[in-house]
Design a protein around this nucleic acid. Sequence first.
DNA 1: GGAGGTGTTAGTCA
DNA 2: CTGACTAACACCTC
Length: 276
Amino acid sequence: MPELPEVETVRRGLNKMIIGQKITAIDILYDKIIVGDVDTFKEQLIDATIAYVGRRAKYLLFNFDNGLTMISHLRMEGKYQVRSKISDFDKHVHIIFHLSNGEYLGYRDVRKFGRMQLVDTNDVTKVKSIALLGPEPLTPEFTYQSLLEGLKSTRKTVKATLLDQHVVSGLGNIYADEVLWLAKVHPEQPANELTTQQVKDLHNGINEDIKKAIDAGGTTIRSYVDATGHSGEFQFQLNVYGRQGKPCKRCETIIEKIKVAGRGTHFCPHCQVLQS
DNA sequence: GGAGGTGTTAGTCA
DNA sequence: CTGACTAACACCTC
């Protein structure tokens, strides 16, 4: 799925394309995407107008003018597409919002992992998955101190901890690997054993890498495309993700791929040494 | 053809 | 409580 930079890119694209559009009808072709009652979901959104698309970590927040917000998580490979004809959507488009300008907003998700939930706008921050999120990069709440506390409080590997959305939110498998490479930290290092300098390097690396990725419009590995149909450009700047068998960009050592926290993990065995 | 991997997270189990 | 593992699903690559 899209991580924070990709979701932010989608958010910006949607805000350019669908603000002010009223929902005139909704086709739900696969019920499990919708959290809660499908008929209620439809009824509450018909005739509602999209006021603004916000974001919290990897969650998109579609704010409507009737006091409701649709929380949308793309999970592994969900994406939004705007098309002028329903026949322009393929079989993996499971939800179709009919817009008042005659266009259609489709939600495409090959693996069907994504979820949409409608809640009162005032209650968004009370929804458990959102309420428990840690601070996100590039905000005042994401401080060196907050990261230090999150890392010190667990014996998990640092990679697993960076993926834990309660410590810092918005990072996924790509940026976790990238940030660990930037900070020269081994992915399997226990989080509570990191040095002060390593935590500082991670904090800076997270902010810098996420900012760069947002500026580049996110990463496109396989099929991810933003709402306007453009690919992100950040994959050209990836330093380790997907580069197993290739030379490290710093020291030429061959990048290795192992499994950490159940996820494919790329690192340089020379730059990122396990401390004991 | 079959096994194993894929950008996530919620739930289960020890 | 914490940490490890798995399911949810369809497709792609070896």
